[in-house]
Design a protein around this nucleic acid. Structure first.
Lengths: 340, 340
DNA sequence: CTGTTAGCGCATTCAG
DNA sequence: CTGAATGCGCTAACAG
């Protein structure tokens, strides 16, 4: 029945094309195309049924590559994150994937593991894929190394792609802007109100924008006080390391993200320092996977999945100029902090 | 300088094609193709340089869709997981993305959130993308609902795609097989050797293969004993709920994965049951993000990232029949378990 | 080593 | 409403 249809491939496979379907249904290629793919044109009910049946019988599958080539635009959205194992990015990715799916798009993820060169390489690759949009999550360093990325993004946009950023509004692109300063400030105020006066901030890398904003927002909301600032990597081990050099008098420690707070917690435990008895500890992000930690982490909750989803929606919207969506964090006081 | 090159697009963008590059370099289309894309053919140094310069000047970017169409094979690998937020899948995804990158491929992820229909839909979509391979992570239910998936996978393979599975060897595909039974058995023996005799297993869904294997492996290694089996969802809340109905005499609880163990830990804490003082607790997977839990979780370590990487390598290998790679778990005793 | 020539599978004018 | 014809950008024979 399908002896004359389909093409044999090297491996010995068949592949049914639109033309096969059209022939089998006794209609033109154009008509088959119109019914099988979302065309604006209408097709008579009779032919439509024929085509659909033929497609089903033959097991027709759209060739997305051909479609993309013919249409000049594909259905992939690129997502570039630092590390999928970091629950912060995993949550964002989850939201992005879900939103993309709602729009009939698929997501391609790239992980850079904080290598700027890889970030650029992924944007380039996504450009080659003619991805509809690329979403960048995780803040870049506030330094010259970002120039290469910028250039690559410009190229990408010059080719007709959209770009959206999760983090801060820096690249002149659509942005899901996190109110890091405000969130950290609110946290600082809450902590201050609980009687704390001697603070330390596990501040992350000195030039990582998200870290800097949270650190500054926190310190800025503590008039007259000057918290001890300790820099280090933005991850669990960074928190562990930084916690080791906290000054003796400190009663409350703010780690600029939850994952670092976990590291700090481990450091305290290893040194026999009890939380919150001896020192209070707070983080930022409210990572779901970490909610069962003991003591439960005081933090600033961010709608991570929603942020990812919003980013793809921004990138897919038809808005003219780059638009910015703001998201606020919500202070959540839990057992890791105790009033003084 | 580029007034006659490139095509203007609706949005007003340029897009430089290989033909533009060839013309600009004064060579043939074929030659340009050969130098710019990994062809086996050699090109003279002179022309090669010319082409490369032309490409750079014009800002040429390969059109992957066209390439895929012409070649009949693309460079995407599909990865289908249940939930990126679950650190188990995140780790596997991380490994897969890295491995794919090493092979010059990109990864498209789909999340099903345990909806079989979505799993099928993703495989179908990946087929349309002419994805080189699809990796399925997370075990499917051992029931009729898997039939649809099987059919879809067959269609996918009929089109020339490869499929690899992370979990158990069931689909007749390349498989990264986890020694769930052996790992759970080894754990049981270790626990038994520490003096435990009264066990409970937070067993997960009755028909989820991974869960069943772990449960059976565990119980099977406890001759003469019959642990209390409590079924429930395979996630954190499932562990919490199941832990609520543990019999009084039990001294040691095995949750079939770490995430469930975390839930159980929370349940114990809420009810004033101390771990490991009142009851010992063990999990499975050794999720990195959970290593700082207190008490530290006794578990069976799985090389998650490596499993993901192996899966893509299997799928990309030229091996004829479906091959199976076995991975073993390693028992890791930590503070959540105490000898009796 | 290099150029010419056909398609790859599909969307889309443009006629009818 | 339907069909015929053209081209998307690139690769891969096939000649030269």
């Amino acid at each position: 029945m399908c002896g004359i249809l389909g093409n044999r491939f090297p491996g010995g496979f068949f592949v049914v094309t639109l033309e096969d379907v059209a022939r089998h249904a006794g209609v033109s290629l154009a008509t088959a195309s119109r019914v099988l793919n979302g065309s604006a044109r209408q097709v008579g009910a009779g032919l439509r049924a024929k085509v659909e049946q033929a497609a089903a019988e033959l097991g027709y599958r759209t060739n997305v590559a051909a479609q993309t080539l013919a249409r000049g635009a594909g259905n992939v959205i690129g997502l570039v994150v630092h590390d999928l194992v970091d629950p912060y990015f995993a949550a964002i990715a989850d939201g992005a994937v879900k939103a993309a799916e709602d729009h009939g798009m698929v997501v391609m993820v790239g992980t850079t593991h904080r290598d700027p060169a890889k970030e650029i390489a992924y944007v380039s690759s996504l450009g080659a894929q003619r991805a509809r949009a690329v979403i960048l999550a995780g803040s870049r360093m506030d330094d010259p190394s970002a120039a290469g990325l910028r250039a690559e993004l410009d190229r990408y946009r010059a080719g007709g792609g959209r770009v959206a950023v999760v983090g801060q509004d820096l690249l002149g692109a659509d942005t899901v802007a996190v109110a890091n300063r405000a969130g950290a400030a609110a946290l600082a105020e809450a902590l201050h109100a609980m009687g704390h006066r001697e603070f330390a901030v596990l501040a992350g890398p000195p030039r990582l924008i998200t870290a800097v904003e949270r650190c500054e927002g926190f310190a800025g909301a503590l008039p007259g006080l000057s918290p001890q600032i300790i820099h280090g990597p933005f991850d669990r081990d960074g928190g562990y390391g930084a916690a080791l050099s906290i000054d003796p008098g400190v009663t409350c420690v703010f780690a600029v993200n939850d994952v670092m707070a976990v590291g700090a917690l481990a450091a305290f435990r290893d040194r026999g320092i009890r939380v919150p008895d001896d020192v209070s500890l707070a983080g930022f992000d409210d990572i779901a996977t970490l909610r069962d930690l003991v003591p439960a982490l005081t933090t600033v909750r961010l709608p991570l999945a929603e942020m990812g989803a919003r980013a793809v929606e921004l990138a897919l919207s038809e808005e003219a100029g780059p638009s910015v969506v703001h998201v606020e964090g919500e202070v959540v006081i839990r057992e890791s902090v105790r009033a003084r």
